[in-house]
Nucleic acid binder design. Structure first.
Lengths: 250, 250
DNA sequence: TTATTATTGTGTCATATTGACACAAAGAAA
DNA sequence: TTTCTTTGTGTCAATATGACACAATAATAA
């Protein structure tokens, strides 16, 4: 198989890893790649070309490894502990034929990785290309992750922590929900992330007061009960709220 | 002069830069280093040893270049645009005798830098050691920065943006104010960071309601008017507030 | 010694926001 | 038509906020 990248053209000792969050059936999910020749899973990640901006590298890597396009990735942390580079890791990759022996030296480097995260609508992920390192992609509930490679578990945890902190003062839901959604659906997203129940009526009042939602004249049909109104985000007001926050101490 | 570092023992293409904020005379200041043989100034920064954790590298670099110890540095962004590495920069460093010619190759690399920031009490900075690259340290008001090296201006801006955003939902002031401080002093810090005036009485009410302050039985003597009470932060409660935020949407 | 002046400590009040809750309307199934 | 469950809307008390007044205090000037 063709080598997936040229070590000589990549920034040494630097990688990017993407934590892609999706929301489905009232559960927060993460997109993972199944490694070849190995029972472990990994975040979609890769390397940075020498002539490539860091943020662009993350976008490219995500596209190459999962098929996801036009995703707004947000940088959240640089992971740089020496201990995250397990001795013997590169050797194991070669022994299990996960990588070509010519890449062993590359993988023996000490790596710093920059974590990015994104929120995407669950259905937006097409059938992903299996690439050089992975068999397939799969969504996993954040509650039941499979064994992850190296410190990827910690990267997911840190991303989730950042997301939850962000939720406290910024709007959320655009990119994570379908274009049109109901108030109960939006509430379910908040309840999942916050891990607590919210009062339906107070939630609606407060959410509407932020003035980032547009009420449509359509309803979600087909449910077993009263058809709820569909809402959409007002993109401009949503962006404004992202900039300035939803509430402020002073 | 002895070489300040061994390129062969450093992580290639990676640096750390520290934005150290101080507060004095109702102004927010940043600690800068005056470069030798160059009219430009720089953030205290440096390189990461191959066997050194990223966060520890930032602490060491800050200590080596400014004498600051026991500073809590917080990572805030990775700067990874290709354009931040100006072509000809390394050459200029050699020509102006800022660095030894043997280091030219090292400085010609494309660098990604990890930005850290800290809030320190102004008086805590001892007379700094002039090191291999710099003549001396100086505090500069955030409003009147001198010409900065490369993209250090942008790094300062991003740090300030992060700090202001943080102010909206987290406590601030520990490490930035003396151990004991008055309510007007704390308010001045907030007013400087927010760039707006606050009502004295409402500020006090709200600040006390967070329950992170301890009122002492001492007063700030020597002022021209009524001696204000000295407060201190309750370290435990302060840390708790950092974890959970001061106010929350839900 | 006393008055002046600027600043600090403490409060009040009207208004806005929040949390807890009730009830009617709508859709599907019995 | 009745029943069940969910959605839409509203009320009300408790709490938080913004705007403001007044007394106490410390240095200085008269």
């Amino acid at each position: 198989m063709e080598l997936p990248f040229q070590p000589s053209q990549c920034q040494p000792g630097l990688s990017v890893d993407c934590v892609i969050f999706g929301f489905h059936e009232n559960e927060l999910k993460v997109l993972l790649l199944k490694l070849l020749h190995n029972r472990e899973w990994a975040l979609p990640g890769g390397f940075v070309m020498l002539d490539e901006d860091l943020d662009r590298a993350a976008v490219r890597v995500l596209r190459e490894r999962t098929g996801l396009k036009r995703i707004f990735l947000r940088q959240f942390h640089a992971f740089g502990e020496v201990s995250r580079n397990l001795p013997g890791h590169a050797d194991k990759l070669v022994r299990t034929q996960a990588i070509h022996p010519s890449l062993q030296a590359w993988f023996e480097q000490r790596f710093i990785t920059i974590g990015f995260y994104a929120l995407v609508e669950y259905s937006q992920v097409e059938e992903p290309h299996p690439d050089y390192f992975s068999e397939f992609c799969r969504w996993y509930s954040i509650r039941e992750l499979p064994p992850l490679m190296l410190d990827h578990q910690r990267i997911v945890s840190k991303a989730l922590e950042t997301l939850r902190l962000q939720l406290k003062y910024q709007p959320i839901g655009l990119n994570l929900l379908p274009e049109r959604f109901t108030m109960p659906e939006l509430q379910a997203l908040y309840e999942t992330l916050l891990e607590k129940k919210l009062d339906r009526r107070n939630f609606q009042r407060k959410m509407l007061s932020y003035d980032i939602l547009v009420k449509t004249d359509e309803f979600r049909q087909g449910g077993a009960h009263k058809a709820p109104v569909l809402y959409a985000f007002d993109p401009d007001r949503y962006q404004q709220a992202l900039q300035h926050g939803l509430n402020s101490i002073w």
